[in-house]
Design a protein around this nucleic acid. Sequence first.
RNA 1: GGAGAGGUGGCUGAGUGGUUGAAAGCGCUCCCCUGCUAAGGGAGUAUGUGGUAAUCCUGCAUCGAGGGUUCGAAUCCCUCCCUCUCCGCCA
Length: 422
Amino acid sequence: MLDINILRSNPSSIQENLKKRDFLFDVEVFNKLDAERKKNQIDTESLQEKSNKIAKEIASEKDPDLKKNKLKEASQISSQLKESKIKLDSSKLHLNNFLLEIPNIISEDVPVGKSENENSVIYEKGHKNLFNFEVKDHQEIGKLLDGMNFEESVKISKSRFVILKNEIAKLHRALIQYMLNLHTKNGYEELYVPYLVNSESLKGTGQLPKFEEDLFKISNDNMYLIPTAEVPVTNIHRNEILNSEDLPINYVAHTPCFRSEAGSYGKDTKGMIRQHQFDKIELVKFVHPEDAESELEKLTLDAESILENLSLPYRKVILCSGDTGFASTKTYDLEVWFPSQDSYREISSCSHFSDFQSRRMKIRIKQSKANIFCHTINGSGLAVGRTLAAILENNQNENGSVKIPEVLIDYMDGSKELILPR
RNA sequence: GGAGAGGUGGCUGAGUGGUUGAAAGCGCUCCCCUGCUAAGGGAGUAUGUGGUAAUCCUGCAUCGAGGGUUCGAAUCCCUCCCUCUCCGCCA
């Protein structure tokens, strides 16, 4: 949610900025809604004042006749007040709904563009293996190793789920352990959090009200499966006033993530790239606004360190304005190399939300004068399923066996290679 | 799931229809006094949102959340959420 005071004082700059997203901020509609709200609020509050005053007078009025008159008057005010409140509530609701649908403003250093084609690569890192044989994709390797099954999961669930087995299931687990250990060593506090959250939490981080169709909702309760650990972790401090000496707060959490993937029916139908359920390690920071830029860089580096240590080739991309998410002011994507697709694919998305989320969630920083909203930053560190798939593809041998990255060998009880079953 | 008790400011804790945004204590901040320390005295100490250019002034709201009754609700009624105790069930 944007600062309503800026919308009032400088609507054209906001409008200009949001054009970069192809979002039309309708100033006229806004002004109309805000003026309506203002009028109703002033009306209601002055009636309320009158009502409060006369109620006090009644309490101390001794003369029975005067008291009777005042009661009559008070009764009239009260019914006017009731009507006025109804109007006020409705105008507040309209204004609020309007505000909730406005995306965050785009940071000045974000390139302007319409779609992901206009994202710009900052750098590429790591060595792409030059395979002297025809590379297999990860699902084929998974099958050869008897570690990945997409048919059984359809039977027990539906498409876009996977069953991992044996050494691949273990590698999946090893990745989680490894990532959590590295991040906690780098100063992130580890959390275990609920996978079901209420709608307030989703509103706080920005998934609701706009993106309900991307979520799985529990039918017998007003709860949703989390689409990312960002939701429970960021909402930990909802409605809180933080002490500035406690900042930055750094959290890391591993959770499964559930996404309906509505609207992506044709995309990535094979393999583990796009699933309804996947595991992810999420990094979340609560920071002072002044530190936000540098903290985003830090967090992105922390996510990158996993890719580096796993020796996976990747690149860092800054998303253009049109591809930057609703709540974000600036986003870096980390994309890992998939040799079977001859392309890079997103494996982490590191975003600075400025005070967009904290304003919705009312997360403030204690100041001597007026409290300010803190800034939130988060990113994957990393998506586990995609990391697994990337290792299988990048580390494959001709027969389908796979070299285990050095740093994971201990986590695999000393195994250096995933070998084909006999 | 059943029975009962309860949710008040940073904390403890009064308050059962009318100057209660809220007593008192603790904590915290500032000032005074006391040649250190200890003790004492005084003042202040929530959040949000309006009117405003304004940290001055001032209105309104907030005693778990949302409704209702009433001229007036922290106090009465309803629904929901949460906490505690006992019982049942259970990874």
